[in-house]
Design a protein around this nucleic acid. Sequence first.
DNA 1: TCAAAAGTGTTATCCTTACACCCATGT
DNA 2: ACATGGGTGTAAGGATAACACTTTTGA
Lengths: 317, 317
Amino acid sequence: MALNEAASKPIAVCSAVDLVAVLAAVTGGQPRVMTIRDGAALPSGPFELDDRSLQSGLRAWVERQTGHPLGYVEQLYTFADRDRAAEGSARRVISISYLGLTREESAKGAGNAGWRNWYDYFPWEDRRSGPPAFLEKAIVSRLRGWAKAADDAAKRRERAERLAISFGLDDSPWNEELILQRYELIYEAGLVEEAVRNGDRDTPAAIPGRPMLADHRRILATGIARLRAKIKYRPVVFELMPPTFTLLQLQRAVEALAGLLVHKPNFRRLIEQHDLVEDTGTTASDTPGRPAKLYRFRRAVLAERAVAGTKLPLTRS
Amino acid sequence: MALNEAASKPIAVCSAVDLVAVLAAVTGGQPRVMTIRDGAALPSGPFELDDRSLQSGLRAWVERQTGHPLGYVEQLYTFADRDRAAEGSARRVISISYLGLTREESAKGAGNAGWRNWYDYFPWEDRRSGPPAFLEKAIVSRLRGWAKAADDAAKRRERAERLAISFGLDDSPWNEELILQRYELIYEAGLVEEAVRNGDRDTPAAIPGRPMLADHRRILATGIARLRAKIKYRPVVFELMPPTFTLLQLQRAVEALAGLLVHKPNFRRLIEQHDLVEDTGTTASDTPGRPAKLYRFRRAVLAERAVAGTKLPLTRS
DNA sequence: TCAAAAGTGTTATCCTTACACCCATGT
DNA sequence: ACATGGGTGTAAGGATAACACTTTTGA
């Protein structure tokens, strides 16, 4: 590293840069992610110099692939740690990752590309029917063992605390946003195939959850975490919905993303209170039970609300 | 762009990558940012391949430079738009930017490096004594002119709306987090030197606020925006405070960052309620008025609270 | 005594949470 | 009738915002 203060023009050091996309959708009540290589990797490729910008290039590429406009794109993170290389060669790569939201629909992924339920990769993150049965035995108890196995007492305490917070043990509530922290804990403990590949441990039995190439699973976790956080303060769920939808469909989408169940009456009020939707006048009829009103996203909110929500007790005047 | 699904190994396309740091501190009741080249640029330099990771490399560099531990580092954004090159050569550079927080103290910036009040670059962002006098004439009225000058009606409406929201006109409240949006509006309207340099407009009189090289001012705005947002939901202010401090000092630091005044009694209650600080038993004596208790940050909160704060109405059980 | 800052009390309001309940449709 | 989902009412509790006020020091 040389952040030289007096640097004239930066020297033209060169690195391989690639782009990685976490493309999310919701269908059939499940959260989906676009994958390639038969589910083993996220879509990615070299960053070419003639793009207008990273974001617009990514958008164009996705729209070409899926035939659908990408509703929303945001940069996720840029990874550059050495231990990313992973696969033999110590080649250093910089990965710039993006999160994109789309309505799945015609998921005409060419070749071996396709949409997968993202809980295939993180089965412990789906708590819509309560904590999964395997969690305690296959994960938590082994992490407890790992925490106890640290060298000194301080480290043991620290690990135990991270474990409790990440997985919502001992009075800590489960926090669905901590998906990356949970993955990293499991990784550090050597319980995922990716960690084993990197030679950090000898070969323990892998835990439930499908691995991915390189660090794509970490990137996916980063994307899910961002989305789980964002749905709480920005109206991004709507990017994943069809043009019109019932409030229950909307709720199911939120639940799919969060991996948690939501309180129906209060959810409806929340949506209505914030004026996020408007009535279309029509009702959905093909469903069981009483027909539900169909709503559409009130796109005006995107402009109206810069949102943000104060948290500082300001003085008036 | 070629996010080829079937990509075997990405081709070794090469780009120049550099790191840019937004280092923030608070002293003398003012927010500071570390600059080089006599205040014209942010510290930056080429990214070298032998670093362990971006973050740790940046941390090491800063600690060497300032002699102080960097309390907090986070990645800001990776810029790669073509129009960044700006300065003659169409050379494409990728800039990975970071936000770092430190206690200024011995700001022994070597050479022409040093701490600057960040409102030198964004004078309209400091509203601690109300909206600055020049705002209406030097900025808002000219932006209104720019909004009216758009080609078609739709674009005029869109510009007027962005203007109203960004600058808190027509019933919209001022939102201190929108600093980047405000800067981009001013940039698009051709009112900053940086835009003129890029040849977007002929030469209008520049508005108050010091320009920077390349797009460093945009990066700085990104950093300030992140920090202004983050102090509301994470205890990061404390990274900028001395080991012990009074509640008024803490309040002044928050005000300096936000560019807004805070309601004292309610601020104190907020801090205490959340158990963010603990009493040291000592009091500050050298100040005017009644001596204030000195507090210290309760570092335990970093571990205890994964924080997050639900916004979804979950079902119990 | 006054200025300056520390610090406390109290209220109105809003938002969130939880619980209870009724409504409309198809089988 | 009953299952399924749609939809409303309301009350308790907590957080926030606003106002008014007392306390402690140094000059």
